[in-house]
Design a protein around this nucleic acid. Sequence first.
DNA 1: CTGTTAGCGCATTCAC
DNA 2: GTGAATGCGCTAACAG
Lengths: 330, 330
Amino acid sequence: MNIKEVARVAKVSTATVSRTINGSDKVSDETALRVRRAIEKLRYYPDTNARALGSGRSSLYGLIISDITNPFFPELVKSFEDVAMRHGKEVLVANTSYDPVRAEHCARRMLQRKVDGVAIMTSEMHSRVLEDFHQQRIPLIFLDTARSAKEISRLVIDYQSGIEAAVEHLHSIGHTSIAYIAGPSKYHSAKLREKAFVKGMQRRGLAVPAHFIQKGDHTISGGYQAMVQMLVTNPLPKAVMTSNDLTAIGAMRAIHEKGLRIPKDISLVGFDDITVSSYTQPTLTTVRIPRNEIAETAFYTLVDMQDKHGIKVCPIHTELVIRDSTAPPA
Amino acid sequence: MNIKEVARVAKVSTATVSRTINGSDKVSDETALRVRRAIEKLRYYPDTNARALGSGRSSLYGLIISDITNPFFPELVKSFEDVAMRHGKEVLVANTSYDPVRAEHCARRMLQRKVDGVAIMTSEMHSRVLEDFHQQRIPLIFLDTARSAKEISRLVIDYQSGIEAAVEHLHSIGHTSIAYIAGPSKYHSAKLREKAFVKGMQRRGLAVPAHFIQKGDHTISGGYQAMVQMLVTNPLPKAVMTSNDLTAIGAMRAIHEKGLRIPKDISLVGFDDITVSSYTQPTLTTVRIPRNEIAETAFYTLVDMQDKHGIKVCPIHTELVIRDSTAPPA
DNA sequence: CTGTTAGCGCATTCAC
DNA sequence: GTGAATGCGCTAACAG
């Protein structure tokens, strides 16, 4: 079943069928109706590959993430797909599994499929492939990249505002002894968060002794272990902020195992606001990164870049979500 | 940059370039080397669309799920992608958002992209599109479909074994008053689980009064509400099994809010073994569905169906994972 | 082992 | 408003 058959049945040329499908206005209503009837009758549907080959455009957008099992991503992916679908576009999702080699592979695949744009939401992308995108004039947008490359748009998350609000929140209810579990320093975003925390503390004249900053790895077990380390220090902090929610969830567990109560003995603040953070026990106070906003901004920027041919820097604001894991110190 | 250019630079025909790329053994090492050098030099990469158009095969496999933000799916998607990638294939993931119309749309897209096979892990697929797959001889495999269609393979989850083990576990540690929070009866799988529970109870001569079966909707809030309902009954059950982990997590919250302790006052058993179930407080005893096994079986079956041209019914076993949310009744 | 050639299904000129 | 013809980049017969 192909366009030729449809043309034959509708008694028109293939060009007219093509025009009808693509909504060209240069087709009389009468003819269009005949074509549509033929399409219906033959249960015809166009071949995307042929269409892309013929036109040069694929209506496909790439989305590269680290790992779909990281709870930060599902909502992001979904929002991106939703907005793309609303605009009649499709999405090709690829996981890098935090592996630069695989990341390059993903990017290459996007290139091979002639995607109309790619949103890169991971930091493993340092390869030469990026140049190919530039050369092919395929729009690119990064989330939180450290480097500001030539022809690449960026989503810049304003960690400062959310973390500042979190420190302020803790401080305002009486906390002064606040510790932090950081993320892996290889991540630009983790470093920014840590800096924002330290800055917020300094601004209020609050001390941050070295052992009040433990290193996690943005996983639950990493958070657990970091918290275990922290719980042997003396004196204990009265509040702990973390580099992401998974870390906080792990920390939560360590605190409970130690027989301490949240927020009675220790207040806890996460970062990201992943779904489960509303359902931990207690529910987690955290800093929300609006993932749907990230997804939509990324998509619209990519679309925009196709004609405008300029790059954009898009700020994304974060905000404090206060739940039950924070309270005044005992 | 296309195959013609490469051929020119390597001083061979396009056919030879094509053969080299596709690893045909009918190319002399010497020639192949020259071609590879040209490819390297020109930074050439083949156009997937053209390749699919020319060959008829796309090396693309479709994976249709309900909703990537449902924690059951990320691990499944990841495993499917991993196994596909290991075999040099790609994956197109589509969310139906539990919407039959959108489900049809997803299937249509797969069709348009000439996928080599589709794994359908959702139950919204009742459309005519399925016939098109059959007509195109595109292998299809369903997860837990109620209907056993003609040319469609099936993954059949053995709910009975896991749930039986769970009931046995509770019974063996002294429970006799066991309630159940069911899933939406529109889901075939939810009905099977409920039946398996009732059967397990009957087999042991344990009563299941009507109010000991509440209806949830497989979401956290649904589980919460169902549990709230259950907690006003008298006498309270000493153990509660649920149709999935999200339901259990919601129930957990309701129980805690009521001031009851898990497992001291009420034991709780989930179903699915999603990642967070290892990190709830307390950790959740649950029945594990091996999602990587589902993904791999689905993929291999699809590949197999391409040459074998027969259908397969693949059993998937479930097993009990005992954690901290179950204990003998007080 | 290698080259020639004919499509794959569609979009897109350029005529009419 | 419509049709005929060309080409997108590649694969697969077929020849040699």
